[in-house]
Write a protein that binds this DNA or RNA. Structure first.
Length: 276
DNA sequence: TATACCTCCTGCAAGC
DNA sequence: TGCTTGCAGGAGGTAT
């Protein structure tokens, strides 16, 4: 599942390989991918040039001048930049963008969970309705230990749930939440109400260290997610606990355990990660 | 207001 | 071997 590093990799690759084309024509094969009225989406985006690329959390943002096209890949969404004659998986390609350079940008999504939005341009990225419940990006300088402490102090949720809550931190998903908990030596079921300010300082530091490393590695390639555009990530080689049930903890040798926290599969080391 | 649960959707693995 | 069932996941909506 694409999280912040994978989305950043997709964005960088698209910006590099696609440039600034005009979207001449759009075919929407599966309506539910488009939020709201599909015909309005097509009419609003057709004829626009992609001028800039941006990202907020796990959302891809394509600045098309008067309109902003926003996409969320959810579980398995991928973009493929291909020539029209290249064959494609018709069952799983749900939107095709015909570009003025003759190529096609094809949106592929096995589970059809992805969503696309189109809005009139706003100055502030956070002003778009789809970001109403999206907090500060993990790399946003305004996201500090103080902000997290104020936001989470007194709440009864666990550390893992807080990391996955996009209204708290935008960009962290299941894989990196496990890795951050491990780096903090905290059990994923630790109550955030029991965390001190210095714990949030460490959280910010470790989160940015891990996500930054993953961005530099091109993200994580696992069974349910491989990057599009011929780019595969290498961060899975650096994962320490996620999806390693039964394997030895890299620090103490204890077998990694798997539990469910907040409805999500969660991997941790019982000996190294203390619960509070 | 905060939290829990359900829904969307499909591939895969396990069990029969 | 082939069928059925349950699980996995992110985010939005609804219920408590």
């Amino acid at each position: 599942m694409p999280e912040l590093p994978e989305v950043q990799t997709v964005l960088d690759t698209l910006a590099c390989q696609m440039g600034h084309p005009v979207i001449e024509q759009i075919e929407v094969i599966w309506d539910n991918i488009v939020h709201g009225d599909t015909q309005a989406f097509i009419a609003g985006l057709q004829g626009r040039r992609i001028e800039q690329y941006a990202r907020l959390g796990k959302y891809l943002c394509f600045d098309c001048g008067e309109v902003m096209w926003i996409a969320h890949l959810r579980m398995e969404g991928k973009f493929y930049l291909q020539q029209p004659q290249e064959p494609y998986d018709q069952k799983h390609v749900h939107v095709i963008f015909h570009l003025d350079d003759g190529r096609q940008l094809r949106y592929h999504d096995t589970r059809k969970f992805g969503r696309m939005y189109l809005y009139e341009h706003q100055e502030d990225l956070h002003a778009y309705p789809c970001f109403a419940n999206v907090g500060l990006d993990a790399f946003d300088e305004r996201l500090t230990a103080d902000v997290l402490y104020r936001r989470l102090h007194g709440r009864s949720i666990t550390l893992k749930q807080a990391l996955l809550d996009q209204s708290v931190i935008a960009g962290v998903g299941n894989i990196y939440a496990d890795e951050i908990c491990f780096a903090l030596r905290l059990h994923p079921q630790t109550r955030v109400s029991r965390m001190r300010k210095k714990d949030f300082e460490a959280l910010i530091t470790e989160m940015r260290r891990i996500l930054g490393g993953a961005v530099r590695a091109g993200g994580t390639t696992i069974r349910s997610y491989t990057s599009s555009l011929g780019v595969d990530g290498r961060f899975q080689l650096q994962l320490r606990v996620h999806a390693k049930k039964g394997e030895r903890c890299p620090l103490c040798g204890e077998p990694i355990k798997k539990i469910t926290v907040g409805g999500r599969g969660t991997y941790y080391c019982e000996r190294c990660q203390k619960r509070r």
